[in-house]
Design a protein around this nucleic acid. Structure first.
Lengths: 143, 143
DNA sequence: TTATATGCAAAAGCTTTGCATGGGT
DNA sequence: ACCCATGCAAAGCTTTTGCATATAA
C-alpha cells in the first residue's frame, strides 16, 4: 500500500467535501477511510459494505450514496468490470494507472507505463482530440 | 457501414453456430442479421430489442440469450459503458478498433490507430505479459 | 422424432430513492 | 436551529431463468 497516496488523497477528499458543504457523518467518513486504504485498486460497493458490516456504521444505501458523491467530486474513478458490476478506486492526483486482468486467475492488477501514456497522448493529437481521460484494460497471462 | 466486414462476420458466425450444433431459429437469426449491419459499433440489448419490435420475431429473453451465445462463441465483444449497461459489437476477425467518447455529446465513436496497437504490444512485452486482448477508451472533445 | 429455440412471466442482483429519524456545525 | 447524513424498506433497471410450447434438422 502506498502511504503517501493514501494521505494525499485523504487530505484532498476532506478538502473537496468540505468545500461542497458536506458534513462528516459516520457512514461516509468510514467509507472514505476504507477507500484511502483499500481503494488503491478496484473495489465494489458490496465489498465495501461487507467490510464495513463488522464495524458499527455503513448501510448499503449510505455506501452507494458515498461512492456516488465522491465520484461526482472527481475523487473516485468508476469502472465496469466484465461482470457489469461497478468498481471504484481512488483518483490519484499525481497520476494514473491502468489494469491488467489475469485470465488464469481473474485477478485485476494495476500497472503504470509512462511510454504507454505518451503513446495515448500521441493518439489523441493524431485524432484531433483534446483528451480529458482514458482507460486501458489489458487481458492475458503472465509469462 | 463496412459491407466486407458485415459479410465476413456473417459467414464466420454461421460457421461457428453450425459447428456448435445450434439451429437457425427466427429470433437469433434476426439478431445476427441486425448485428451484422448495425453492430459494427456498440449496441445494447435494449436497442436491439426495440429495433426488432417492429418486425415479427425477438423477445427480450431471446435477444439476451442470443447475445450471450454469440459472445461465448467469440463472435461479439462486450463492453460496459459508464452507465453500467452492456453493449456489444461484432468481433472483427481482421482487426480491432477502440472507442472515443465525446464528452460534449456523449457519442461513442470507433477509431483505429496502428501506432497505438504497437505501443500496447510493447507494454505487454515490458510487463512480461502474453496479451490475449485489450480495450482502450478515450474521453475528451473534438478540437 | 428429438434436441434446440422461443416467449412469457417470474426471479435475481445491483443500484437508487422516499421517508422518517439522527447528527454535525 | 438548520440542514445534511443515515438507515430501512420499497422501487427501478438490466439481465437471467423456469417452463411449456413451437420448430429446425
Amino acid at each position: 500500500m502506498d502511504d503517501g497516496l493514501r494521505d494525499r488523497w485523504l487530505q484532498e477528499a476532506q478538502r473537496r467535501m468540505a468545500r461542497a458543504g458536506m458534513r462528516a457523518g459516520a457512514a461516509r467518513t468510514t467509507v472514505v477511510a476504507l477507500l484511502a486504504r483499500d481503494g488503491q485498486c478496484l473495489v465494489s460497493a458490496q465489498e465495501i459494505t461487507s467490510r464495513l458490516a463488522g464495524g458499527a456504521a455503513g448501510s448499503a444505501a449510505s455506501v452507494y450514496r458515498a461512492l456516488e458523491d465522491l465520484h461526482t467530486l472527481g475523487l473516485l474513478h468508476r469502472v465496469y468490470d466484465d461482470d457489469g458490476i461497478a468498481r471504484f478506486e481512488i483518483a490519484d492526483p499525481a497520476g494514473r494507472h491502468h489494469h491488467f486482468v489475469d485470465e488464469q486467475t481473474g485477478a485485476i492488477e494495476p500497472f503504470v507505463d509512462p511510454r504507454l501514456e505518451e503513446a495515448i497522448a500521441a493518439t489523441g493529437r493524431r485524432l484531433g482530440i483534446e483528451l480529458t481521460g482514458h482507460e486501458v484494460t489489458l487481458r492475458g497471462r503472465r509469462r
